[in-house]
């Protein structure tokens, strides 16, 4: 995992990933404390006690995040050695790209073309991404959204958007 050179003098952190995670969160926390809190949390007028301020809890949570991130970095540098379980990555690119497409379909098309069509579309994309080769399964992708949407609308009275019905 570590990229540091193999000199005898070089220092190897016990758990590099914790150091990286800690560093990212530390930077994030500092950004939150010094930019987000003052710019995106309005201070209320007439705050008598600092603990009453809308900025108090987010500020505290931000500082705590920063402190714990620092601890995480220290632990990663000097703590116990962690055995790495090699991550199980490496699915084909098309597979996860189709998954992202399916998620995008749900988000961008839902209101526009309705629940049934997005449901069918996204499910088919995900089936194809796996890929599933049995034909019969694709019928599920068709039947389920239609059945579920009608169940939601007719039985549960939950109005899901549909393209052709207002």
């Amino acid at each position: 995992m570590t990229t540091s050179s193999e000199d005898a003098t070089s220092f190897r952190p016990a758990n590099t990933s914790n150091v990286i995670v800690g560093a990212v969160f530390l930077v994030g926390a500092l950004f939150f404390i010094f930019y987000m809190v003052p710019h995106h949390i309005q201070e209320a007028p007439l705050v008598k006690n600092p603990m009453m301020s809308p900025r108090w809890l987010p500020g505290i949570a931000g500082w705590l995040t920063a402190i714990f991130s620092l601890l995480l970095i220290l632990e990663g540098l000097f703590g116990q050695k962690a055995e790495h379980d090699k991550s199980q990555d490496g699915g084909p690119a098309l597979r996860w790209m189709l998954m992202i497409v399916a998620l995008a379909v749900y988000f961008f098309l839902f209101e526009w073309v309705g629940a049934i069509i997005t449901g069918v579309l996204a499910t088919v994309i995900l089936f194809a991404a796996h890929p599933i080769r049995q034909w019969l399964v694709y019928i599920l992708a068709l039947v389920f959204p239609v059945a579920v949407v009608f169940f939601f609308i007719q039985v549960l009275d939950v109005p899901l958007p549909l393209l052709f019905l207002s």
Binding site: I116, I117, V120, V124, V146, F164
Partner: peptide, 21 residues
């Protein structure tokens, strides 16, 4: 293959929806 799946699905959905519409 997927293309035919799409088109058949679309037709079926259209029919189902049109009926109610």
């Amino acid at each position: 293959k997927t293309k035919t799946i799409f088109s058949s699905i679309y037709i079926a959905v259209f029919r189902g929806v049109l009926l109610v519409a």
